[in-house]
Nucleic acid binder design. Structure first.
Lengths: 139, 139
DNA sequence: GTACTTCCTGTAGCCACTACAGGAGCAAGA
DNA sequence: TCTTGCTCCTGTAGTGGCTACAGGAAGTAC
């Protein structure tokens, strides 16, 4: 059983974030020492590491909670996990696509900027009415 | 001079968002009718539209405020705008790259998932220690 | 005993909105 | 004139996923 600082080091999750995860119910409340300090087992560290990996992959916390509810039960989890992962992948693809479009728009805007003249054509373009219909979705 | 609902329609900015922009100082406080309702001029609508376009391009609000402080003055704005736009472009590129890496990691994880067996190899991988070093940055 | 570090709880801040409560004004029709 | 329905007002709280800080208590090393 180790304290939260060590748990943070071993899991890669920030101390404040560990407490936040506990508060919102991502990980269960750990045991406490007689003085009231949190004590973590090896399993709990592993769970924290799992959460961190999922977060690094961009999964939102409610999805991670679903994942965690699946671990332990052997049957029927794979299909649902796959669906959730595919949905997430689709969202990532959409984000990439949107960012690429945004990148294009920005490049088009700023490439007129390098002629060294005083007035900024990019700001002008942003001010004019003709621009801005192509880039619309959320990133 | 038009009311906030019309201003919202003509600028494409949500009513609540217009009030939010006013509150945080992105756009100046508009005039009011005798009954206390906001009244917007053509120029103010144009400014709202400018803010919307910048937001659609992903510029954060402080940058947009800098842009707005440049409009009106003719000299020296282009170079600074260009720098800000380039920085923003670099950030977009970094995001795209990170998402692409994330996408790869997710694909690698989930492609073992489609064999129809009961236990989920993806969750297993996420639980094991060997995975997760390649994907680390913020999106 | 003292200095230093780690830990505790609780609250507030970040970003860029969005939603809602509870009320007031305004325009059109009966 | 009255009612209906729409728009608008202010103020506050919620979103996601943390992060930071205040003010204190406990543990450890010398």
């Amino acid at each position: 059983m180790i304290a939260i600082g060590q748990a943070s080091q071993q899991s890669g999750v920030n101390i404040e974030t560990i407490r936040y995860y506990e508060r919102v119910g991502v990980v269960p409340k750990p045991g406490r020492s007689t003085a009231g300090r949190r004590l973590y087992s090896v399993d709990e560290i592993a769970k924290l590491r799992f959460v961190k990996r999922c977060r690094d992959l961009g999964f939102p916390i409610p999805i991670i909670q679903t994942f965690l509810s699946f671990t332990g039960q052997e049957d029927r989890s794979c299909g649902e996990v796959e669906t959730l992962a595919e949905d997430h992948l689709a969202q990532i693809d959409a984000k990439i696509e949107n960012l690429a479009r945004l990148r294009e728009a920005l490049l088009n805007l700023s490439k007129n900027c390098d002629d060294g003249t005083a007035a900024c054509s990019m700001l002008d373009s942003l001010m004019r009415d003709s621009f801005g219909e192509a880039v619309a979705q959320k990133s």
